[in-house]
Structure formats: C-alpha cells, structure tokens
Design a protein around this nucleic acid. Structure first.
Lengths: 347, 347
DNA sequence: CTGTTAGCGCTTTCAA
DNA sequence: TTGAAAGCGCTAACAG
C-alpha cells in the first residue's frame, strides 16, 4: 500500500475521460462520437472512423456521463420505484422482480418508501419527477389521482402494481382480489366450516375492499368482520376481537398474510390452537408462510409475475411513443389457493 | 375533466420553469438567483432582491434541476445503496433505516441488488459512479478491495454495513460476530447442552468466519460443523447433515436466522421436534423469528442501528472535506441474546 | 459521412 | 451587491 509524499487534503482524483477526449484521440469531433454512441452501430459511418472511435473509447475506458446525457436528452434511463413500506413482508419478491426487469432493460432503479403516507408519497414522486426519471412504478401505494396527474403532466409514464385505484387512471397489474377471497372462503366451507369470520384491511384500499366484498358474497352479509390496519398488530387486535366472544368463528379469512400472522399471534394470546380450534387462511403467500410452525394456507398474490408484468407495461409505454398516450390497461392475474395446514376441518 | 380539441399524439407537457424564468420574473440574472439558491440565505444580498427572488420562485413553483446542478457541481445529492440480495429476510430493517437517514439528510437513494455476485456488484458500483452518486453504502456485499478502490479513486465515499472485510479499507459498521457467537453457545451450554453443533455460512464472508471462530472457542475444535450457503435451503441441507447421524447434537447454533429457519424445516423433515429433540439458536433476529410457531432464540444484529450509524458515518465523510481523507473507522456494535423458545434444556 | 453551432439548466470566477 | 461569460459533458439540427 503505497503512499504519495504529497500530503494534500484533496487528492487528485483521476479525471474521467469525456467525449471530447475520445474525439481528439480518434481524430474526429464530439458530434461524430456522439453519433457513434447513439445512432446505434451499423449506420452511415465510415468503417475506419467507427473503428478508431471504438478503439479510443476502449483505450480510454470511456463511458458517457448519464448526467450530461440526461440533461441534453431530458431522459435519464432511470425508473422510480415507490413502495408503501419496504419493511413489509410482502414486497421483497415484487421489488426484486421489478429491479431485475428494469436492469435487464438498462434502467437504474431509484427507490422511495412512503411509509404508507400519502403526503410523503407525493414528495417522493415530486422528487423523482425533478430527477427526470423516465417512468415510475407505484407499488401498493396510496396514490391519489393527483399524484398521477402530476407525473403525467410532465410526461412521465406510470404503472401501478399490486394495488389498483377505484378508477383506472394508469396501467395497473393486480391479482384478482374478489375471486381470491371467494376461493379462500369456499376452501374453509369445503372443510366444513359454517361460522366464518373476516379480518379486513383498510377499506380505502381497493384490493382490501374487494376482498371483503368477496368474503361477503360467500359468507353472507351477517358474517362477522373486523377491520384494521393491514399490519401484524392490526391483524392481531382484529382477530382477538373476532375470537374473544361467546360463539367465535371456527375459521377466519384474513385480507393479508401479514395480518394472518398477527392472527396466529392472537390465537396464541388466547390459548387457541391452529388449526384445531380455529382455521386460518391468509392472502399474498409471503415467504415465511411456508415455514413449518406457520404453514399458512393462503391465496397467492403472485408478486414476481405482477412485478415483471408491471415493468413490462411501463417499459412499453416509455419506449414506444405510439403507446405512450394509449388508454390505461388493467391486468388482473388469477389468485390461486395455496393449501397448507393452518386450515383444517373444525373439530 | 376538460379535453382540448387538439388530437395530437404528443400532448404539450407543462414545461418546468428554469432558473432563467425565475430571474426574468424577479428582474435579475440567473447568476443572482443561483447565489440565492446556494450561498444559503442571509448573506450579501439586498433584502429587496432576495424577496423578489423568493416570490418568483414560489409563484413559479420552481425547483432547480438536480441534473443540471449535478452536471455543473459534479455532485448529485444521491446515495447509492448496494445490497447483496433484497429478498433476504435480513435487509428490510437495514435498508429502511438507511433510506430514512439518507432522506432526512436530503439525499435520494439509488438501489442496486447484486444477487451476491461479485461481478454484478462491480457493475452496479460502476454504474453508480458514473451517475455520480456522492456516496455508497455497501450492505452485506462481497466487496473486494478493488471495488472500493474504484470508487475511492473517483472521490466517492463508502461505508460498509453489516459485513466487514478482512482489512479495514473503509468505514465499517458491524455487530460483534465473535462475541455474539460465543454468547449463543454459552446460552446452549447453560441450558445443559453438551453436544453442540454449528451450521456455518460461507467462510469467505468475514462475519460468518468470525461466528464460526466464536463457536469453536466455546464448543471446542472437534464439535461438529457443517458449512453451507447462507440461505434457507443451505441451512436446511446443512442441518440435515448434522442431525442425520448416530449421535446428533442436541443443540445447534446457526450462523444466520435465515439458515436457522432452514434448520427448522430440516427438523420437520426428520421428524424432530424443536426444542424437545433439538435446540436451535440463530443469528440476526429477523422479524419472523418472533412469530409463535417459530419463536427463534437468536442473537440480535441490531440492523436498524447499524444502518443508521453507517449512514451517519457516510454523510460525515461526504459533508466534511476534512474528514474525507481520514483513516477508516470500524464500529463494532454489541450483539445481544434474544431468548425465545427454540432453545430449551435437552430432554 | 463528418463538422459547426447551439443549446440542456445550473454554477462559478471575474468584473463592474 | 449584481451581472457577464464560460463551462459541466452530451445531443441535435443543419450544413457542407
């Protein structure tokens, strides 16, 4: 580990080569190099010139500055990803698949987490717009339509993943919450349950409203429902309120796995055994659900595919000017039942 | 919702106001506005001018373009975050705390996930350098020293979180793996276990090597050890190999909770009950460990504090030119035991 | 096929 | 205290 004698606080950092350096070295102008860089290869350029430029670039290990490029092109090869809360059990797969798809297409991901707060969400969106992201993936956020208008007005494309809005204001990829909920309840019924309850998430969130609706369609309007925040603690409290009565339900359908895990905790709190005393079905199929000791029967939200497809849709709009203005598309993916052992016939 | 008559495919997006617009409106030049923007408030500027600029900015809802600013200042108010694999149970808290700390300081986070692949990691780091991030947080990645040199040569500050390297080449914040491992083993011993095994992670990863070392110090060099990839499946396979013998250990210390969860699965595979037949202690204290049905006894990696402190250290170097060249600092946080029920006295 | 000339939006000397 | 001018690194007409 060598040290220079100079004792300066600001060491000389190796200056990055610029397009000008490449041009000089190749004996052409910046413009020509720029053409080489952009108008892809193979078009209207003397083979010898192209070769000299190629060589110069390689020798200098030159890479165009995304900043400068972004400034002059007003596009940054960047995609913004806004999630409600990175901490949630539910996102890892979704985020990972978006990240993978985006990078495969040559885009860099800029991450923002709103903490499920609509104001912070707008801040983040604003900041991304200023940074000139080319598109935004909104994952399970509370996006009011204004947020979306804000972006659209600036020509930034958007896609919603995993949470739809009451109106179809942008491309959206979700799982079929209504059908999934019905499947869940039917599963409980087929096991012999007749008294079934539901722990619902915030009804302002459309998928949660849909799940509740699906529940009611199958279990009837008078079946017991407790609504809470979609969190571990929310599910725990709601489940407790549902179970701590004279005639508790023998099976409960939770609007999310996160809440269902809270439900498991509530059962432990009350000394109830799952599935002996109460059967539980969740929604999402988070990874931890497959652990022995949890073995959560659930509805698969297919996060990986939702993320992939959302990214596809976004890229399509971004890349294809013709598609950019087209009407929003709604993709509803099937929600499949994953049977484990947290739901069984009532004793 | 009004619609214009024009049916053009390229709708006119509202042009964002520039510093020039503000200048014109305030009756000054760009330079003056720029000064207002930078030399903070309260310095050498006619009160009336300042007020006019303030008003113009507000009326126009002007915000300086980060791109342009980045280009001329060579700094982007952006921090790069490189994680080994977002999918891991272990990161959410760490990432969230880094994200929070960075945003609180006015920085935007750019996310990269390397899939634990050193080559991809270098790619990501390169790309971040080109995008002129001001600093990089490397979370549990495989950073070879070259990666770090690459950044440093370009004047980009670095901090390592949760995984240290054999040499202290950059600021580093980790938990005390050696002591944590010893605590884990002592806990098993205090419960009465005499035959204790260890499932180790890749020994090229220093914290895993340290944990193994700590294990050996307490359990002796001849205690059974199985090494595997630090994943659910890795832990599962390693645990199985440890348990599927004539005289299996009654307690196992896992190098990570992720592996310990795999261990739980292995026990289920072999029809062993936890903690009746075998006691399990993990390392990290991931969220799911506290679920009933898991109740994993573990060592807390204190992800939140590690993330915060790493970000603090990074910001300090970035913001304070005097500190920028100072020698790397190593912060080792205490690793505390979290007692739950996956470890109990041997029957 | 390649070069000239303007910008993109902001910062930063250097003058005035 | 403010302005003029050059430049950050690249792209994009328009010529030639």
């Amino acid at each position: 580990m060598q040290k220079t004698m100079r004792d300066d606080a600001t060491p000389e950092h190796t200056r990055r080569p610029t397009i000008k350096d490449v041009a000089d070295r190749a004996g052409v102008t910046k413009a020509t190099v720029s053409k080489y860089l952009n108008r892809a290869h193979g078009y209207a350029m003397a083979a010898s010139t192209r070769e000299r430029i190629r060589a110069a670039i390689q020798e200098l290990d030159f890479q165009p500055s995304p900043l400068a490029r972004g400034l002059s092109r007003s596009a940054t090869s960047t995609i913004g990803l806004v999630v409600a809360d990175i901490r949630s059990q539910f996102y890892p797969d979704l985020v990972a698949s978006i990240q993978t798809a985006a990078e495969a297409a040559g885009y860099t991901l800029v991450l923002g987490s709103s903490g499920d707060d609509p104001d912070r969400e707008l801040d983040i969106i604003r900041s991304m717009a200023h940074r000139r992201v080319d598109g935004v993936v909104l994952v399970a956020v509370r996006s009011e339509s204004d947020h979306i208008d804000y972006l659209r007005r600036r020509g930034i494309q958007i896609v919603l993943a995993s949470r739809d809005l009451p109106e179809l204001v942008a491309d959206t990829v979700v799982v079929d919450s209504l059908a999934g909920a019905r499947t869940a309840v039917r599963h409980l019924r087929s096991l012999g349950h007749r008294h079934i309850g539901h722990v619902a998430g915030e009804l302002s969130v459309k998928p949660f409203a849909d799940r509740r609706r699906g529940f009611e369609l199958e279990a009837g309007d008078d079946a017991p429902v407790a609504t809470a925040q979609s969190s571990f603690e929310g599910g725990r409290a709601a489940a407790r309120s549902l179970l701590d009565v004279a005639e508790p339900p023998t099976g409960i359908f939770f609007a999310s796995d996160t809440m269902a895990l809270g439900g498991l905790m509530a059962c432990a709190d009350l000394g109830l055994r799952v599935p002996d005393d109460v059967s539980i079905v969740g929604f999402d199929n988070v990874t931890v659900g497959q652990l022995p000791g949890i073995a959560l029967t659930t509805i698969d939200s297919d996060a990986v595919r939702v993320g992939e497809q959302a990214t596809e849709l976004l890229l399509k709009r971004m890349l294809n000017p013709a598609d950019a203005g087209a009407d929003p598309v709604l993709v509803t993916r099937p929600a499949e039942l994953v049977v484990r052992t947290s739901a069984a016939p009532p004793r």
